[in-house]
Amino acid sequence: MTETFRLDGTDVPFEAGETILQAALKAGRFIPHLCHHPEFRPHGSCKLCTVKVDGRQAASCTRLATSGMKVESETEELNAERLALTQMLFVEGNHFCPSCEKSGDCQLQATAYHLGMTNAHYDHFFPNRPLDASHPDFLLDFNRCILCSLCVRASRDIDNKNVFGLAGRGMASHLIVNSKSGKLVDTDFSVSDKAAHVCPVGVILRKRQGFFIPIGSRTFDKKTIKEYVDTRLGEED
């Protein structure tokens, strides 16, 4: 007999060892998330996926499902909190979507749409984060990094390279690359790396590919983030 938990009043089946988020997504139930990716070990930093488990907030991407637990997700309170976190991510970095190559394909943006965000609400930090254009094929625009560590995990766990890493603490946390010069060109990063293709936002960008796809045909012009996540589950990319 498969075990189940209650998500917003309906049963969701799960297998032993699955997190709430994994089980929910498998059942076609969407919970907003940014640092979770089906191919990687859970991380739990963005907190967008926060749900209430038996009345207390918990990150659904790291909390294991247990039989009979009562999980709330689509509540006004939680969505308001998720919106606030999304807004925090927008003001923390420099997100000028109109001039971002990732616009339309960006999961942060799509999540913000999903949550009905019309503005970033908080006062902007406007940090100064110089770009790294040293690599012949890739550009790093750190202004948009949300510290989800997907590139770090991909490079370490899949590419066996450690091209990316997190450094600093608190608001000074930032992404670094594995070279003495601090430049991407001096690392062994390559196009075929998994890490080259996991950034949910517009940091790790392929050069000479920007704005190729016209507005209207980009990922999130055609799909909502929920639909995208549904299709990604089956896909091996």
């Binding site: 420099n94 997100h95 000028f96 109109p98 970033a120 902007h124 406007f126 100064n128 984060r129």
Partner: peptide, 12 residues
């Protein structure tokens, strides 16, 4: 108007 947009890219 909402986040400074293109002109705000002079901010750094």
């Amino acid at each position: 108007a909402i986040n400074g947009g293109l002109p705000a890219q002079r901010n750094p």
